[in-house]
């Protein structure tokens, strides 16, 4: 996982930025922001077709799943049963087995219900799904997901849509150190520098939705995230200098007049 290709669930991605497709003003804006972000994988939700309005534009008119990888999610599911139902429908719809599982536990914080999440992961893996799993930043539970066959561990930086950034760098670092599957920070990233910090810690990727869609200029912010993720990754690979308590001059003392 040290090279500049993100290998996740059998896919090789040049971009370590995965973006969500929710909350944009229009599908046109969604498509433009995704293009600017350079992302090769996007999350999508599964919902009822609006049967009353046949002319309403749909996401797939603007994004082609043959050109960009669709990662169907289970957003809005609060138990294993609903999450499994959603992902089985997604598999039938697209014909692929790569999915993002998220089972929520609380309406106010949208915090993951890890008991239901682990239960669902086990079943999905058994059914042949490749499951990228949204989870808490608890290293023990992250390990449990990996042991149960998760294709990627996706701990939250802070609550979904909060924009609070990385709240527990230590835990995220512990998860990165112990994981053999990719670790992708999901949820809570507020601005481009947050993504850089996550990547500098050694994350394999980040998943961003609200921070781009809710920016004043989403397309410019998408570009900022693209650069931020590349910078963070390069900085991680370069290895930061050691921190010192006192100053050390940058110019040589020898030859001082």
């Amino acid at each position: 996982m040290k090279k500049n290709i993100l290998k996740v669930a059998g896919k090789s991605l040049k971009s370590r930025l995965i973006v969500g497709t929710g909350k944009y003003k229009s599908f046109f804006e969604t498509a433009k922001a995704i293009k600017a972000s350079g992302a090769e994988m996007v999350t999508v939700a599964v919902r009822r077709v609006n049967i009353l309005d046949k002319k309403k534009p749909i996401l797939t008119d603007y994004l082609n799943p043959k050109k960009i990888i669709f990662l169907p999610n289970t957003a809005g599911c609060f138990n294993s049963e609903d999450a499994l139902r959603t992902l089985r429908l997604a598999r039938e719809m697209g014909g692929w087995k790569l999915v993002k599982l998220e089972v929520l536990g609380d309406k106010k914080t949208l915090y993951p219900n890890m008991i239901e999440t682990i239960k669902s992961t086990k079943i999905l893996v058994k059914e042949g799904f490749k499951v990228m799993v949204y989870c808490t930043d608890d290293p023990l539970l992250a390990k449990k997901l990996e042991d149960n066959g998760a294709s990627a561990i996706m701990p939250l930086a802070s609550p979904i849509g909060s924009g609070l950034g990385l709240q527990n760098k230590i835990n995220i670092s512990l998860i990165i150190k112990q994981s053999k599957v990719p670790v992708i920070v999901d949820a809570g990233i507020g601005t481009a520098s947050d993504a850089t910090i996550a990547m500098e810690l050694g994350c394999d990727g980040v998943l961003i939705n609200s921070a781009i869609a809710n920016a004043k200029k989403p397309i410019l912010m998408a570009q900022a995230f693209k650069d931020a993720v590349i910078s963070g990754r390069n900085s991680y690979l370069a290895g930061r200098m050691q921190k010192n308590y006192f100053a050390t001059p940058s110019s040589p003392i020898k030859g001082l007049i």
Binding site: G20, T21, Y24, F27, V44, V46, T60, A75, M93, S210
Partner: peptide, 10 residues
């Protein structure tokens, strides 16, 4: 009968 499709989501 339930008919579903992909929509924007994070």
């Amino acid at each position: 009968v339930e008919i579903v499709h992909f929509i924007g989501g994070g």
